[in-house]
Amino acid sequence: MTKIKSLADLRKLKDEVQSKIKLREKGDHPENLIHIKVSMATCGIASGAKETMNYLIEELDHQGIDAIVTQTGCMGYCYAEPTIEVSIPGKEPVIYGHVNKDKALEIIEKHLKLNELVDGIIPTNYKTIED
């Protein structure tokens, strides 16, 4: 990695990574590139988030669905771990709770392939500092 030498450099890097993230999300196949975030804090991992994440990666790979699966921190819904957030480009992100392998498969089969929501959505109930 090269060092960042000034605030201007930092801003440049910010724009770069932002467009990289956008590119990754919108990509060459705007319809297909899906981003799934798995909440991987202690609470999530204790409830099986690692297994869910591995399963998602394998199953998506197996089915040839182009999607990015990344980890993130605690979303705060510890009672409903493992939780994942599914973002399909052009649509509002949706958070699901209690995502075990079966639920993960249901989400792939219905939400990702048929664009159909499934039971177990957790409504976001907070504002971020951007709001």
């Binding site: 975030k37 979303m75 907070y126």
Partner: peptide, 21 residues
């Protein structure tokens, strides 16, 4: 939406192991 996230603003949004995010 009764919650306002300042200290937790990035928890659950970014990948904590990637500084670029």
């Amino acid at each position: 939406k009764k919650q306002v996230r300042i200290a937790l603003r990035n928890c659950g949004f970014i990948n904590p192991e990637n500084i670029d995010e």
